[in-house]
Each structure stands twice: as structure tokens, then as C-alpha cells.
């Protein structure tokens, strides 16, 4: 693997205004690019002699709307003590404002010739009609990845010639990987003996939470924590 710092320097040389949009974590570099620039950035990343990102490994759509929300408060006790699993009916809290928009597209690039990797994040600006230019002209493999992101998250890729659904059923309504889409879905299918055919009907399963979502930031899980067989005296909430 090429050195992360040299890769970062080379990226800064090729892509303008990258200083604040480049972060490296766990030996991986992430750059954030605006949707308008994505095609030109990808083209220069692929064609640059020093970088040669010849393979698009993956495209992942992300819905950031419930980022950082948990179902079990661990910091403050109410009058009845610490809360237990919060019901789903409370609905999502106000969307997280840590991100410029709800939807993002994450590209993973790999250079087979130079042996390094890069992650690009693009925020799709309009939350109701998220749109990102298609990179299909840069890498052929973008075709199905973009179809998948469109199908599952409803992100539109401008310039994609064949943006059909890929994963879901023929005639499916909705985008299942959005955070406001229930895990059990919205319709279920069964054979109806009266009409003698297969029909769709609203789901009859009650949504339930088996394990509530908990966010703990008291650093008890940091890797350099003392192993528990050394009998540390921390309290468990």
C-alpha cells in the first residue's frame, strides 16, 4: 500500500480546494466533492499519471437522516429513572444537521496499477429529489451500482442511460433503504382464495425493536481499555 500522506499530497495537487475536504481515518482517505465537480474530479483521478484510479470498486448510497439518534437515553435520568426501549411510534427526531444534506453517494476507488484506495463522498443537494451526475462515462462498472443506489435509496443519477430498478420486485413502490422505510416493508403478498390469484395487501406484521439502538460515548469500548479480567471497577448502566 502506498503511503497515505504522499497520496494526500498528490490528491491536493490534482484537485483544487481540497484542504478542508480531505480527511484520513484508519489509513483511509476520504475526500468530499460537490456534485457539480464529480465527473471532472473522477476523470482527473482516473487519467492522472500519478494516481491512476483505474477501478471503481463500489458505489454506496447513504441516507444520513437519522444519524446519531438512539432509542435509549443513557446520559440523563428522567423522573422515573433511565428510560427503557423507546417505542417506534415516537417517530424520528429532527434530522441530523451534521451533514449538508440527507443523501450522499460514496464512491470507493482502487488503483490496481498504483495499489492505493480512495473514498469520495458527494452530497446530493435536494433532499426531496436527490440528484448526482452519473460517472458511467468514467467507469463502466458504475452502471449497476448507480441503478442499485437509485433503486434502494431513490438517488437520481443524471446522465445514466438506463436508470431502472435493479434489486426490488417488478412494480415495487418506494425506496427500501431509506431510513423512513419500515424494516418489515409496506406491503405483503398472499394467495387470495376468493379471487384465485396472488394479491398485495398492507403488512400485518407489527414492527418491533428487539434490541434498542444505544449510543454510548463513555469510551468504555476503546481498544486500549483494561481487559475486564483485571477487575476494573467501572459501573454498567
Amino acid at each position: 500500500m502506498a503511503d497515505i500522506d504522499t497520496l494526500a499530497d498528490r490528491l491536493k495537487k490534482i484537485i483544487p480546494n481540497l484542504e478542508n475536504n480531505l480527511s484520513s481515518q484508519l489509513g483511509e482517505i476520504t475526500i468530499t466533492v460537490s456534485a457539480a465537480d464529480i465527473i471532472s474530479v473522477c476523470q482527473s483521478l482516473r487519467d492522472s499519471e500519478e494516481l491512476q484510479f483505474d477501478t471503481l470498486i463500489d458505489i454506496c448510497g447513504v441516507d444520513y437522516s437519522t444519524y446519531g439518534q438512539d432509542e435509549w437515553s443513557t446520559q440523563t435520568a428522567s423522573s422515573t429513572g433511565f428510560s427503557r426501549a423507546v417505542g417506534q411510534e415516537d417517530g424520528p427526531e429532527s434530522p441530523s444537521d451534521a451533514f449538508p444534506s440527507r443523501f450522499a453517494v460514496v464512491y470507493h476507488l482502487l488503483s490496481v496499477s498504483k495499489n492505493h484506495r480512495l473514498r469520495i463522498r458527494v452530497f446530493a443537494l435536494d433532499d426531496d429529489w436527490p440528484r448526482v451526475p452519473s460517472v458511467i462515462s468514467v467507469w463502466t462498472s458504475a452502471n449497476w451500482y448507480e441503478r442499485e443506489a437509485f433503486d434502494l435509496l431513490g438517488i437520481m443519477f443524471d446522465g445514466h442511460t438506463d436508470l431502472r430498478r435493479l434489486m426490488t420486485d417488478y412494480g415495487f413502490i418506494g425506496h427500501p433503504f431509506r431510513k423512513d422505510f419500515p424494516l418489515s416493508g409496506k406491503v405483503e403478498m398472499r394467495y387470495d382464495p376468493d379471487t384465485k390469484r396472488v394479491i398485495y395487501q398492507p403488512v400485518t406484521i407489527t414492527p418491533r425493536v428487539l434490541v434498542p439502538r444505544v449510543i454510548r460515548d463513555d469510551h468504555r469500548y476503546s481498544a486500549d481499555d483494561v481487559p475486564s479480567d483485571q477487575k476494573d471497577s467501572e459501573s454498567n448502566a
Binding site: 463500489d58 444519524y67 482502487l110 439502538r213 444505544v214 449510543i215 454510548r216
Partner: peptide, 20 residues
């Protein structure tokens, strides 16, 4: 190449898991 892209927001469940 089988890849797993994991986004965590600090919870006990993944925020987003993408399987390549």
C-alpha cells in the same frame, strides 16, 4: 474482492452497511 463498508455513528448497530 469482497468488501464491507461500515458507517458507525457510535451505536451498537451499524448505521449503514454496504457489501461490495
Amino acid at each position: 474482492e469482497f468488501g464491507v463498508y461500515l458507517i458507525s455513528d457510535g451505536a451498537n448497530k451499524p448505521y449503514r452497511l454496504k457489501i461490495r
